[in-house]
Design a protein around this nucleic acid. Structure first.
Length: 214
DNA sequence: ACCCAGGTGGCCC
DNA sequence: GGGCCACATGGG
């Protein structure tokens, strides 16, 4: 199958224009991920919600400085109070700590660790993630795609903007766009990861900030 | 002094 | 199903 459609052609154009986005996404595109790195990516996905990478990065560093940059450490906290000041730089400090502790409890206590989720069916994990407080479709898909390396395409405002500009479809709902991209592409984790990164690079320009080495 | 940044849940209809 | 709103910070 040669995937003769606009979505796939756009991917090839973006790849030609910007090159492999690996350099912009050093951690998320790592070939071999440790359990620790998968956790950091997932924690970052929650912290960056409606925030900037710069601010999420400050919070990640704060967590690291207190030995809290791991889901087991976070799940051991008696309350989310300690997290409030640490993640303040990435905003929504009343809600994001609850989201983090809820997610950490789900992974560590309910699932038996993030590596256990690697073996689980994508749609099952996705439903579980969506049931958690503060994990919506985009964050669930970011965790699936970049932390767990599952082929779940991520839709965000950049994707919507690009689709709208190019008039690829009129329905900009999450579910429709997700289906559109997934049905138009080979079911390939690397392509999904690269495509989403390329959309951000295309929309934001080459000065895109990245999550630095934590 | 604005405006934006890789959202989400709670409402309401 | 969709529309509107609060939530909070750092950088331009």
């Amino acid at each position: 199958m040669d995937f003769d459609n606009d979505i796939y052609r756009l991917y090839q154009e973006l790849l030609k224009k910007h090159g492999n986005p690996k350099e912009y996404w050093p951690q998320w595109c790592a070939n071999r991920k440790t359990e620790k790195l998968r956790e950091i990516i997932a924690i970052g996905a929650i912290l960056v919600q409606r925030s900037s990478w710069n601010n999420a990065d400050i919070s990640l560093r704060n967590l690291k400085s207190r030995g809290l940059l791991s889901l087991s450490a976070i799940s051991r906290l008696k309350s989310s109070d300690e997290l409030v000041n640490l993640i303040r730089p990435s905003g929504f400090y009343q809600t994001k700590p609850k989201r983090l502790t809820g997610f950490a409890g789900f992974v560590v206590k309910q699932s038996g660790g993030i590596n256990k989720l690697l073996a689980e069916d994508l749609s099952i994990t996705r439903e579980k993630l969506l049931s958690l407080y503060g994990i919506g479709e985009e964050t669930a898909d970011v965790i699936l795609l970049y932390a767990l390396d599952k082929p779940s395409f991520v839709i965000d405002e950049y994707t919507r903007r690009l689709v709208k500009t190019l008039k690829l479809t009129n329905d900009l709902s999450y579910s429709h766009l997700k289906s559109l991209f997934e049905n138009s592409l080979p079911k390939d984790v690397k392509i999904y990861q690269n495509y989403h990164a390329l959309i951000i690079i295309e929309q934001r320009g080459k000065n895109a900030s990245i999550m630095r080495k934590v």
